[in-house]
Computed example of a mutant assay.
Amino acid sequence: MRILIVHNLLWAHYKASVFQALQHLVDQQPDLSIRVLQIARNERSRASLETATDADTPTYTYQYELLFDRFLEDISLTERAQALLRHARAYKPDVINLTGYYDPAQLLLLAWAKLNGIRVVMQNESTAADHQRSGWKELFKRSVFRACDGFFCFGSQSADYLIQLGVPPAKILLRKNAVDNEALRAVYEQTLPNRTRLQQSLHLQTNNFVFVGRLIEVKNLPMLLNAFAEALKRSVNALNWGLILLGDGDQWAELSQQIGSLKLTDRVTLLPGRPWFRVPEVLALSNVLVLPSRSEPWGLVVNEAMVCGLPVIVSERCGCVQDLVHPDETGFVFDPEEPDKLTQLMVKFMDDLVDTQRMAYYAQQYIAPYAPDVVAQEMLDGFREITN
């Protein structure tokens, strides 16, 4: 079986760890081969997240070809379509895994595959909750999905969305998303012994909530700041708690101003974004992750936090909540339009009304199956199922 995977961005490190695990499985079986076509190096909007490789940067080895060494936005439809078709014809795959239904170039490849009897697996990140959905777009998706033989989904909510659009449940071959659990945990454990010293050097509190991500409107950070300010008023242990916002984005200045107006300058710390494999250095200085997004297809930072044993407080509009956030075990879920609910949950942690050690244990137990080697095996099983 010859497997061809089409992926948008070489920068997407979380996928690289899965592709490496999949390559390892394929190399052990002489009847299999795999090739990954990376369309672009990165998106322009994520350019600031690119970093120069150093000795500590995790590297991943798998068979791939970078079609265009530039930003995805700068590659025309004609260029993408011609390159994908040329490489597919040369490789002669038995099955193709496409990134998504939103790229016309990949839809052309889908049509070519169906004409040539090649099986197609479509990846889906979307959920019914992450955007308002109606009209001709949903009808168009239904027609695209009918042409696919299987689907890899970012969790149960993503799978449920496809089923709502008429996809038979048997065609859902994967319901998971993974990060490099081992690499992240290693950095966390390496940093943890220096927690107090590093907190003091950054002028952080002894205990901290932490947000990790881009500082943009959809992340709902002004609401988080307001909820935290209110929690400080209600908690009996307010003096021991702070909030870290780790990331870059358009709202940096706005959030800085809000922090000042709320008189939180000694409680809220804005830290610039850092490479993904350095994020556990900040998680090691924190106690609880908060992800208050109004829309999030999955929320990989929840994986990252749980790998490090952190409890999580996550918006119900994040795709991962159904699979990863188990109330009173790994964390809590809240409505991002109800700041008072978030305040109540933060106060529970601040006033020691939550068994955080128990949550740390369950976080690592629940996240264990969401690892690259597990996801890779389920992908390979899915490829075999639809080609047989």
Rank of each mutant, 00 (worst) to 15 (best):
H24E: 15
D250I: 06
T78D: 12
F383D: 00
L10T: 00
S134M: 11
W11D: 08
A113L: 04
L225S: 10
I39T: 11
Q106K: 02
L324Y: 04
G213A: 03
A40K: 01
V325H: 04
T57V: 13
S76K: 08
T206P: 07
I39Q: 13
L255N: 02
R86V: 12
A159E: 01
G100V: 05
V210S: 02
F228I: 09
V282K: 02
V312Q: 07
F154I: 00
P104Y: 09
A81V: 09
V290Y: 08
V6F: 08
G166C: 11
D130M: 14
K137D: 09
I216E: 14
V236I: 07
L72I: 10
Y188D: 06
A170N: 11
G166T: 05
D74K: 07
Q38D: 05
H131S: 12
L32F: 14
V307R: 00
L174G: 01
D56E: 14
N116T: 10
N240Y: 09
K341G: 07
E304K: 01
T53V: 14
L67K: 03
N237H: 12
R44V: 08
N116S: 11
A186Q: 13
E329I: 08
N287V: 02
T330R: 13
I5M: 01
T356W: 02
N97E: 05
N207R: 13
V279E: 07
C153A: 12
A159C: 05
T61Y: 06
V268S: 09
G242L: 09
F152E: 08
E138M: 14
P272D: 07
E385C: 05
Q205Y: 02
L291F: 00
